[in-house]
Design a protein around this nucleic acid. Sequence first.
RNA 1: UCCUCGGUAGCUCAAUGGCAGAGCGCCCGGCUGUUAACCGGGUGGUUGCAGGUUCGAGUCCUGCCCGAGGAGCCA
Length: 450
Amino acid sequence: MAQEAGAMAETGAKGVAPSVPVVRIAHLNEHVGQEVEIQGWLYNKRSSGKIRFLEVRDGTGIVQAVMVRSELPPEVFDLYDTVTQESSLTVQGWVRQESRAPGGYELGLTGLRLIQVAEPYPITPKEHGIEFLMDHRHLWLRSRRQQVIMRVRSEVVKAFRDWLDEHEFVLIDAPILTPNAVEGTTTLFETNYFDTKAYLSQSGQLYMEAAAMAFGKVYCFGPTFRAEKSKTRRHLTEFWMLEPEMAFADLDEDMRVQEELISYVVARVLERFGSLLRDVLERDTIPLENVKPPFPRLAYDDAIKMVQAAGEPLPWGEDLGAPHETLIAEHFDRPVFVHRYPVQAKAFYMKPDPERPEVALCADLLAPEGYGEITGGGQRIDDLQLLEERLQQNGLPKETYKWYLDLRRYGTVPHSGFGVGIERTVAWICGLPHVRETIPFPRLLNRLYP
RNA sequence: UCCUCGGUAGCUCAAUGGCAGAGCGCCCGGCUGUUAACCGGGUGGUUGCAGGUUCGAGUCCUGCCCGAGGAGCCA
């Protein structure tokens, strides 16, 4: 059998016999004692002379294939010298349990076919700087660590959507090209739209308000763009945001939905990726176990007192800065809502508290461990006259917001919503210091490549 | 945009103003259970760019470019 597979390895012309099934590495434990084929790439290789190890990855995991000189034809054994890091290949071999092998299983190699011998690979299994890695992001994604992060991101998105779908929210896609700003404050990417100007969306929220009046409970999920020259570990110029919006929901309901949603997502990731978080990312998952409702609710007034008590001179009326958010979050063992910010610190559409018009019915959710704001939202102004006033006060053109004002003309109701930053959520769950590793191809102030 | 730090071999980094080096990668050789394997040998340089000071500049000075960390803004 080994002879036969070896001959095929040499010619490389034909596939393996039908009796050798193609298996993905994640499923090797179901094939102990069988001969299988793995299709993948060489992750690393080691040699001890007459016994040699090929570490093969296939996107689902890594397995070492063992080459023994006395058990293989020389032309197969010598392929070890030819194969380079990240060469594409197929290997055949017998699956066996082996405590000395990483992952607990290994392949007793019987055949090896090289598809392409890779040129010298830039990312060696050693340390690299962030600029080098970012320049090679298209290759960096092959590394074990990046694979775990991307799989967590995939699971986070799936979990968010599963919860919302199960709670009768309807996915309504918001446009990317828009004629107007949402917040009216942040800098937008401008582009030509035939004879006029268009802007890349910074939020789908206004459109979700329209959709909520049609469907009751809706959400959008897509990329958003901010042309701010932010240069911090929490900012990207292109990032993905989940924005639920609910008719007939007040601020309390808004916060209740958020804590249920976030708790569900964290639990899902822990359940399916807990061991990978610990083993590959070295993430201490104990703090994540605490993420269960209810989350503490802290009024802005009390948050200010907390910050001032720590010696920070922050006057009432100012928005909280990143260090302040960290300071507040340190007082709690799970995410904390800060609600009822001063109206002047928030966007024009935030509804003032009827009992205290100087504060808005809004809330930000601050993640623990210094990760800061992961959601922001609140109750929207539902009164036509007040909304018109707020537009005017913020110097926003009434014409572009005509459709938005229509929502207050035709059957207005109290409604609330929020936005969740996917990258910040993933960074927090994975315990990463910077959001740039949580998106496949990050767009930053000085990065548009690859 | 502002503040701070940095830019030396393909990569990660050393080098009192005095011969530009190490580890990894790569090439050659050795090793029958390796774990970022190990051991021996070899290869590898416009010290970010432009100017200046000096007998002499990777090192000091000026300007510019690029990057990192932080601030503001926000998710």
